[in-house]
Design a protein around this nucleic acid. Structure first.
Lengths: 336, 336
DNA sequence: CATTTCCTCCGAAACGTTTTGGATAACTTA
DNA sequence: TAAGTTATCCAAAACGTTTCGGAGGAAATG
């Protein structure tokens, strides 16, 4: 592999000059620079980022830590969309992306900050991490710059980007209320997810503003899983047949609810309205197509990466970013 | 950041000893080793992979080069599944994964081999690359070990993993024939895709073995796009109303065909049978659910990564791997 | 006792860059 | 003409590891 030394020899200059020429410093004659870059091209030279990173103490690479690449998450392709957004920024701004996946099954033996430190990434984006993840705290307390997706923590070195989950949920429930529904249940995820907490808040707020009672029995946890949600929905709907709409904290759970309705022979949307959250790909392909709160996951990734790199390059003060949501009205909701 | 030197000082030994202790060499006393690793843990030491990579001339990381992360590919989440499979191997075998995405839009200014050389990845997996991609040839001709997904090229440094596309297609068409169909059209992708070529072969073979004629007019290209397939299918079905089954080279195109049928008010499966290829997530959620040739994309990724690392560690002779497919019978195909 | 072997350790070089702090020569200015 | 500027270049140190070639002493062997 050809190094800076080979170029120096070929050009009859020192390595210093080659380095400075290739990096665009002004203290090198244009003629020499031309000669050097010609030779570099000719020799098919690629700078060794390892060596560079070693001396510069930064690698120009960021890590993305995602959870559950392995498993069910294939149904929502959140991860892919986030990745897609992140990746676009990365290549625009000339960074590299290294992927860390936390295999939840076999408890990852290395902590997140260890992963980052070993690979010498300049910063990290965390996605799909539970709030009670012990490693989360550790990486936040470390000095590694990071951006959290959907976990609102802001410190000197950590920022976050999220959607306004409470507002999104509120608007969704308000929409159901506007359609004439008064008996609105909620299929939530679990209380270790920030989004669950906020979406519940929005649900409660919308009800109370409309003067509707909040019934504890009508709020169940589907654990963000299609199957669990289906089970829970069957129970819920048989116990409380007067429920006319269910607001779900995720599309996947909404799919479960739809299956439950089918199982119980309840027609959607005439007998039951279902509202999802996320707008995953499947949402527009189900039958009937799912009305849901659309969040732009690609943007979530895109903004995260931009925020992180801004932080790294000290181009920003603000370390929080809230994105908008809107309701995608499809076929699972109807007038009451 | 704490280095090997700090540990050496703290333990009162040389850096050599620290290095050898931590790397499990036998020429260090167990007591010293214990002392050293205790101190390392205490100081929260992480080895600097950049420095290590520099001297060892290998980074213990592999690159994955995917195309079209940015765009439409979000519908099939092939990329995610491949990634998932690759990632599992990576973490099992203690490598790291760096993601290169070729933004097809803005022509990537760096070639694949440049990307690999700069980042000093030990090898690369290529997925979703077209056969006529100029950079493909370049990376194959370079000395970078790589594994291609669905492109059958085998050299000293490159291997591939793929499914038996001809056989898969043949079985699919045979299934349609067994159901009584004789007028079977094909919606192909485009001829720069290896899979298209092979799937067409399988289609032709099944027909000829059954003594059925191969009609050129009945084979159209949908460019692997849902919209294009829909257009083409409308044309095809209006021109040739006697077609009773369409074999599609991808599920996404099958979705397009289904939309076309709806547009033309043709019922599936009573009037028209549709067979897909891939078994993407959507396939089981469409209405009616799509019968298709299921290939295990996760496995594709998993085997690729294993193959690549085997090659890197010189643990294998064979550099090709063909995976099985099977037909997932759902609701879009019926008896004729 | 002399020699060999084994165990444990270490100094120094090497990997490919960037950067610091000049050095040299050619111009400018006073 | 002397002093200051400017343009262009370079030697050497540094980054944090691994590894080569030995060194010193203790134990084993003859």
């Amino acid at each position: 592999m050809v190094t800076i030394k080979d170029i120096a020899k070929a050009a009859g200059v020192s390595v210093t000059t080659v380095s400075r020429a290739l990096n665009g410093y002004s203290d090198v004659n244009e003629k020499t620079r031309k000669k050097i870059s010609d030779i570099a091209r000719e020799l098919n030279y690629s700078p060794n980022t390892l060596a560079r990173g070693l001396v510069m103490k930064r690698s120009k690479s960021i890590g993305i830590i995602v959870s559950g690449l392995t498993e069910a998450s294939r149904k929502d392709n959140f991860t892919l969309e986030v990745l897609s957004g992140v990746n676009d920024v990365i290549s625009e701004r000339d960074y590299d992306l290294v992927l860390f996946s936390t295999t939840t099954t076999k408890q990852r033996e290395k902590t997140y900050s260890q992963l980052c430190r070993e690979r010498r990434v300049d910063g990290a984006i965390l996605h799909g991490i539970k709030m009670d993840d012990p490693y989360l705290k550790e990486v936040i307390d470390s000095d590694i710059p990071c951006v959290l997706i959907d976990i609102p923590i802001e410190t000197e070195t950590v920022g976050y980007v999220s959607t306004d989950n409470a507002l999104g949920a509120k608007k969704a429930v308000q929409f159901l209320i506007d359609q004439g529904h008064t008996n609105i249940a909620m299929m939530n995820g679990h209380d270790r997810a920030y989004v669950s907490i906020k979406r519940l808040e929005g649900y409660a707020e919308a009800l109370s503003e409309a003067g509707l009672p909040l019934k504890k029995d009508w709020i169940v946890d589907g654990g963000f899983s299609e199957e669990k949600a289906q089970e829970e929905a069957v129970k819920l709907l048989t116990q409380h047949p007067d429920i006319s709409a269910i607001f779900c904290a995720s599309d996947l759970m909404a799919l479960g609810v739809m299956k439950a309705a089918k199982e119980l022979d309840i027609d959607i949307p005439t007998e039951l309205s279902v509202m999802g959250y996320d707008d995953i790909l499947l949402a527009s392909y189900t039958h009937p197509a799912l009305t849901t709160v659309a969040q732009n996951i690609y943007q979530l990734g895109y903004q995260s990466a931009n925020l992180l790199i801004d932080m790294l390059e000290e181009k920003t003060q603000s370390r929080a970013c809230i994105l908008d949501t809107e309701i995608a009205i499809r076929e699972t909701t109807g007038k009451k």
